[in-house]
Design a protein around this nucleic acid. Sequence first.
DNA 1: GCGACAG
DNA 2: ATCTTGTCGC
Length: 223
Amino acid sequence: MTEAFGDWDGSIADARRVQAELATRLRLRDDFPKPPRWLGGFDVGFEDEGATTRAAAVLLDAQTLEPIASELVRLPTSMPYVPGLLSFRELPALLQALRLLPHAPDLVFVDGHGIAHPRRLGIAAHFGVVTDLPTVGVAKKVLTGTSATALHDMRGAFTPLRDGREQIGWMLRSKPRCNPLVVSPGHRVSMASAAELVMRYTTTYRLPEPTRLADRLASRRDG
DNA sequence: GCGACAG
DNA sequence: ATCTTGTCGC
């Protein structure tokens, strides 16, 4: 569990070096069971004014989208939030939650960016590289990149998110009249599949079921 | 130098 | 992320 950050020396500057190095191991091609049978949803929340990090992991049946197991892990927060270095703050708790699930999912959705990141290693990509599980990043806001200013207000509409000429993700209207999601592949998932997968597992809410359920647990708004 | 900046 | 009730619009 300490291998998630390689030989990181603990500094902010070195964290960026580690990210660039780990991004080298990303495989952006579909490499997961089709159709997947088990989906995983991951998200993090905080309590005690941020002193405690709370990670939620949910395992769902991909066919019914019903959760079959869920885990909650609480750890003392070890690092402040620094844009671009989110995984160094939240990944440890997420990995522990993953281990508690009855078995590993074969496709994972993480709340946050995949490769739509300055060094192409958002938390979803980082999660995928260290676990070697297929991952997709589902964020609510853009961290880096630009896209068309207008997007059809129809469920399923999408437009590329680019950094220069390179496409790093998609702006996806998962639900009418709701701000679009920022979807990007993490590991072992292609750019084209990332958006399709998110839509496939989205019902009537803005967020796809895996991430929506994990969100509810991590944010204590569960019932 | 001046903004922007996942959760 | 988190602190928080009502309220406008579909």
